[in-house]
Write a protein that binds this DNA or RNA. Structure first.
Length: 289
DNA sequence: GGATAATAGACATGCCGACC
DNA sequence: GGTCGGCATGTCTATTATCC
């Protein structure tokens, strides 16, 4: 099993042509070519495809599910697509894209959830459909066309951040659940710092790109300073990073408190015996204050 | 130092499925 | 049948980076 590459996108077209027309999958240029994105510099009449959006959303989400199912060797864990966790505000109205869960069902309790993935993936390369042969071939990476992969778009990233914060502030019971945003392109420059801060402050545990080689020529960013963004280069690396996250038993906490008040809480918590107990006591005091 | 290219960020679009 | 939120993609403009 491989991470995201050109072949996954080719497969997307192969599968989609069963229930979508070529007019729904490709733009038609002035000179009669079928392309998946408007090439850079193209100045003819343009439109914006809409029918393709949900197809891509479903396909990428399903692809991630298959990847995780292949990867996870723990019999006790399940990959749930479109999961609901009503207790923390994730209802049928806007379910979580993908959840790794200890229970094999769509509606989950917070304690059953090991991790939540928000998937933000799109077509990265440009493709041309040849009417005569029926073949689809790659004609350039995202630097050669006008469409921008979602990880390079500020508004897409802001939306992902918003959704994660929405979960964080929904209920204390969400505080143990790590949140990961998955994409297939490098994170834009401006957001690397923010991704790092989101990670160190505990709101989002990472932005991971599952596309090792998004460009045909040239290198891309491997990671941000504090690993808020990471480009996964193979399935092993993804698996390892995921397992590390599971082992840590993280707790999200936040607040606005005076140094005095914090000092008091620390003193009380310090009466506990072990570091583990001291930590948990402190978190409880923080929540109660 | 000025011209040009690249990027960030705000805003707009139209399709879909869920729900009332 | 109408509304609403989610989706990926496009346009536009101000700002920043790069080149000569």
């Amino acid at each position: 099993m491989r991470l995201w590459n050109k072949n996954q996108e080719k497969l997307f077209f192969d599968k989609s042509k069963n229930f979508a027309t070529y007019e729904q999958l490709f733009y038609r240029t002035d000179d009669g070519r079928y392309v998946s994105y408007w090439p850079k510099g193209y100045s003819g009449a343009k439109s914006t495809l809409q029918a393709r959006n949900s197809l891509i959303g479903n396909y990428t989400e399903k692809w991630v599910c298959d990847l995780l199912n292949f990867m996870l060797d723990d019999e006790e864990l399940f990959v749930i697509q479109q999961a609901q966790i009503p207790a923390i505000g994730i209802t049928h109205r806007s379910p979580a894209d993908i959840v790794i869960s200890k229970a094999n069902k769509k509606v989950l309790m917070p304690d059953e959830v090991k991790l939540i993935f928000e998937v933000k993936m799109s077509l990265v390369w440009n493709w041309q459909y040849d009417e005569t042969t029926g073949h689809v071939r790659e004609i350039g990476d995202y630097r050669t066309h006008q469409g921008r992969p979602s990880f390079t778009r500020s508004d897409s990233i802001l939306k992902a951040i918003g959704k994660c914060i929405d979960i964080r502030v929904s209920n204390v019971r969400a505080s143990k659940i790590p949140l990961i945003v998955l994409g297939n392109a490098p994170l834009s420059n401006g957001f690397c710092k923010k991704a790092d801060y989101l990670k160190t402050s505990g709101i989002i545990q990472g932005f991971w790109s599952l596309n090792p080689f998004p460009l045909n020529h040239g290198n891309t960013r491997k990671r941000s300073h504090k690993n808020g963004f990471i480009r996964m280069d193979n399935v092993d690396e993804l698996n390892m990073t995921l397992n590390q996250l599971f082992k840590q038993e993280l707790n999200f906490f936040s607040g606005m408190e005076s140094p005095q008040r914090l000092g008091q809480l620390i003193e009380i918590a310090n009466r506990e015996k072990t570091y583990q107990e001291k930590g948990l006591k402190f978190l409880n005091l923080l929540k109660g204050s």
